[in-house]
């Protein structure tokens, strides 16, 4: 399990780096991109925590998250163009 723990820490650091990018920008597109990256980092963390906790429902969450998670990214893209497609 030590490998899982290491992966969790690394992934969490990656998430923090994305958060830093969201904070400093400089453009809104950078923020949206970093947000997307961070979302997938968190999906990875869900998988790793699921392994660690031996939860049987990990895949349910992962399927749902990947199935509809990209909506937030598209929405942010829509926001950047002020709703223009």
């Amino acid at each position: 399990m030590i490998g899982v723990d290491v992966a969790i820490v690394i992934l969490a650091l990656a998430c923090l780096v994305s958060t830093y990018r969201i904070l400093v920008g400089p453009s809104e597109a950078d923020r949206a991109n970093a947000g997307d990256l961070l979302f997938f980092g968190i999906i990875g963390l869900i998988a790793l925590f699921g392994v660690r906790a031996e939860s049987p429902f990990t895949y349910d969450i992962l399927i749902v998250a990947t199935l509809v998670g990209f909506l937030s990214a598209i929405s942010l893209a829509r926001a950047l163009t002020r709703g223009k497609r």
């Binding site: 904070l23 809104e28 949206a32 947000g35 937030s72």
Partner: peptide, 14 residues
């Protein structure tokens, strides 16, 4: 900016 606020609120939510 409002968009970055929306994104980071998402960070907290996720």
């Amino acid at each position: 900016t409002r968009i970055s606020a929306a994104v980071v609120t998402g960070v907290v939510g996720f």
